[in-house]
Computed example of a mutant assay.
Amino acid sequence: MSARRSLSWSSALSDMRNDRVQVPAGFLGARGRIEAAVRFGKVALVKADGSFDRAGIMTAAAAAAKAHQLTYGSTWAVAMSVALKAAWQAGRTARGRAAH
């Protein structure tokens, strides 16, 4: 057995890039739709006491999922997954903003 090992830096860096978290298709659009709904007062993601408004998050996610389905032609499960991820991320951001 050889005491030396060869390492391909290009394949190692390529593998590292592939391991990073990929943003799902339509995530940024869903997040934008949810933030617009919050900005126009259609839904609230955070209650006055600082807790998450789960009904508001679900309402915003359902609306964003419908738009995602129309745009990408995906299944309801995929569209709802993308929209819920975006809604919770927007909710965490809104809660952080409200705390300061």
Rank of each mutant, 00 (worst) to 15 (best):
G29T: 05
G56W: 03
G50N: 04
L45H: 02
S51Q: 09
R92M: 05
A63S: 14
R31F: 00
Q69L: 06
T71L: 09
A48N: 02
H68E: 12
S10I: 15
A99G: 01
A98K: 14
G26I: 07
S8P: 03
D49Y: 04
S11V: 13
A90Q: 00
R95G: 04
W9A: 13
Q89M: 12
Y72T: 09
M1G: 13
A67Q: 04
P24T: 06
I34N: 01
F52G: 00
R97E: 05
V23H: 03
S14L: 05
P24G: 11
T71M: 04
N18H: 10
K66M: 11
A64F: 06
K47C: 14
A37M: 15
A83S: 15
R95S: 05
R95E: 08
G96K: 03
T93H: 08
R92E: 10
V46F: 03
L84N: 04
R39G: 03
K47E: 10
A61Y: 04
S74V: 13
H68P: 01
R95C: 02
V23Q: 09
Y72N: 11
H68K: 06
R17Q: 07
M80H: 05
A87Q: 02
A99M: 11
V82A: 02
A99F: 06
A67S: 07
G96A: 07
S8N: 14
R92P: 00
A36P: 00
A83E: 09
H100M: 07
M16D: 12
A62K: 05
D15F: 12
S14V: 09
I57H: 06
S2I: 03
G73N: 04
V43G: 08
V38R: 08
A90P: 00
T75K: 06
G91K: 00
A25M: 08
A36R: 15
Q22V: 09
R54V: 15
Q89K: 08
V38T: 14
A64Y: 02
R97K: 09
G50T: 03
R95D: 01
A62V: 05
A65K: 10
G29E: 11
W76I: 00
V21H: 02
R95L: 04
A61F: 06
M58K: 15
G29P: 00
G50S: 04
G41N: 14
R97W: 03
R20Q: 14
G73C: 05
F52L: 13
S51C: 02
R92S: 02
V43P: 06
W9S: 06
Y72P: 01
M1V: 08
A12T: 13
S11A: 09
W76M: 06
R33G: 01
A77L: 12
A65S: 13
A77W: 07
S81K: 10
A67W: 03
I34T: 12
R95V: 03
F27N: 03
G91T: 00
Q22F: 01
A30T: 14
R54Y: 15
L7W: 04
R17S: 05
A90T: 00
R31M: 08
I34M: 03
